[in-house]
């Protein structure tokens, strides 16, 4: 759930910043409207103020620097957690995710186990990706036709599935549960119903399932 956690932290940071900036500019705008009602004429003849402008530009650059630093650090954190070559702890499961027009296929490295389903608007037969909860799972995303995108909105994670290319991402599902996944990249007529489920189950249950 690394992605979700970081998403929430950074989103909170940026939305607060944005709200502050919006409030400041809205206040300035309202001030302009209020001042324009005054009866006395406009006395200002000054059309620029290079010192203030320069100083202001520096402040802006500093703000940009802070945002870049915070968000890039968060990105590093996410990348570290989801990187593919890590050994500590080694991924407990490895799944090849193949997107195709218009559904998903999940191939488990162990036991040649394969899961697929029918992606239709009535989501009864959607393919379900079963993963062990609390353990890192490595996904290798690819496509057999056009570009798709593997998106689990509740977990704030998205990664494209390209033909002739594999993107890998390692995710850890903190607790058992079921989440809806969607295709996020427009991929043709049946794109709107190209959903899947991710179900995280306790590790022992996962073992049973994968052995079966």
């Amino acid at each position: 759930m690394q992605f979700r956690q970081v998403f929430e932290d950074i989103f909170r940071f940026e939305i607060l910043l944005a709200a502050g900036v919006f409030a400041a500019i809205a206040a300035a705008l309202l001030l302009a409207l209020a001042l324009s009602r005054k009866k006395s004429g406009d006395r200002r003849r000054r059309d620029s103020h290079p010192l203030v402008e320069g100083g202001y530009a520096l402040v802006l650059a500093a703000v940009a620097g802070v945002i870049v630093y915070i968000t890039a650090s968060a990105h590093d954190e996410v990348r570290e957690a989801s990187t593919t070559n890590r050994t500590d702890p080694a991924p407990a499961a490895e799944v090849k995710v193949t997107a195709f027009q218009w559904c998903w296929q999940f191939d488990y490295a162990r036991n040649d186990k394969t899961v697929t389903g029918v992606c239709s608007e009535k989501d009864r037969k959607l393919p379900t990706l079963i993963v062990p909860a609390g353990q890192p799972v490595k996904f290798n995303l690819t496509s057999s036709d056009v570009i798709h995108s593997f998106w689990i909105p509740d977990l704030a994670v998205k990664m494209d599935a390209f033909p002739d290319h594999t993107n890998s991402v390692t995710l850890t599902f903190d607790h058992p549960g079921r989440w809806l996944g969607r295709c996020a990249e427009f991929c043709g007529p049946y794109h709107p119903s190209m959903h899947f489920y991710v179900r995280a189950v306790p590790p022992e249950q996962y073992e049973q399932w994968v052995q079966a």
């Binding site: 992605f3 900036v21 919006f22 500019i25 945002i67 968000t71 990105h75 996410v78 994670v157 998205k158």
Partner: peptide, 27 residues
């Protein structure tokens, strides 16, 4: 234009942040 474009600009910083864009892209 001033406040309305500002909304677009400020949310632009969000979608330009990779960890947020992983959720927001194509949504």
């Amino acid at each position: 234009f001033i406040p309305q474009f500002l909304v677009g600009g400020l949310t632009g910083i969000m979608v330009a942040t990779p960890v947020l864009d992983y959720q927001m892209q194509d949504s």
